[in-house]
Computed example of a mutant assay.
Amino acid sequence: MDWKIELVPVPVSDVDAAKNFYVNQVGFADDFDQRVNEDLRFVQLTPPGSACSVVIGEGTTDMVPGSQRIQIVVPNAAGARQHLLNAGVETSEVTPLDWGTFVYFSDPDGNQWSLQELPAVTES
């Protein structure tokens, strides 16, 4: 039986500003934006190539804005960093570790993202 994570909530204080950041700067796809009722606005965004999306909005989570930590695997950490820098997103330097190469950034609320380039597999 397959178990697939499909949607992760990201708590934000300003839905429109967060949507602009994720879509126009980071490069996520704008999948869905619907006000379901007075208390619920559901905005689904998907990182390029990902089978898992994030949801921001009103009434989508009880988490405090800025409290989420998410890790994404990317094919090239330096390339992902350059993409973010070109779009005006502040990032960390590229950080090589034994278990991968990392770049870190935060959204306007302080939700933290880790981008991991997996280490090369060596054949024995």
Rank of each mutant, 00 (worst) to 15 (best):
T91Q: 13
V103C: 03
D98Q: 13
L85T: 11
L97P: 00
L97A: 09
E93V: 11
G100N: 11
Q82S: 10
G110K: 08
L85Y: 00
S92R: 12
L97W: 08
P108M: 06
S92M: 12
T95F: 12
Y104S: 02
W99F: 15
G110A: 04
G110C: 02
A80T: 15
L85F: 00
N86I: 07
Y104D: 02
E93Y: 03
V89H: 05
S106M: 04
N111I: 01
R81I: 01
L97K: 13
D109S: 01
G100C: 09
E93W: 02
V103E: 05
G100D: 05
Y104Q: 10
W99I: 12
W99T: 15
S106G: 04
R81A: 12
T95H: 06
D109G: 03
T95G: 01
D109N: 10
L84G: 03
E93S: 11
P96S: 04
A87N: 09
T101L: 08
S92K: 15
N111E: 04
V103Y: 07
V89Y: 06
L85H: 04
V103W: 14
T91W: 09
S106R: 14
D107P: 14
T101A: 10
G100F: 11
E93H: 11
V103F: 06
Q82H: 12
G100K: 09
N86K: 14
D107Q: 13
G88I: 11
N111L: 02
V94F: 07
H83W: 13
W99D: 13
E90A: 07
Y104F: 14
V94K: 00
F105I: 08
S92L: 08
T91F: 11
D98E: 15
L85Q: 12
L84F: 11
V103L: 04
F102L: 14
V103M: 10
W99Y: 15
V103N: 05
V94I: 07
T101M: 06
R81H: 03
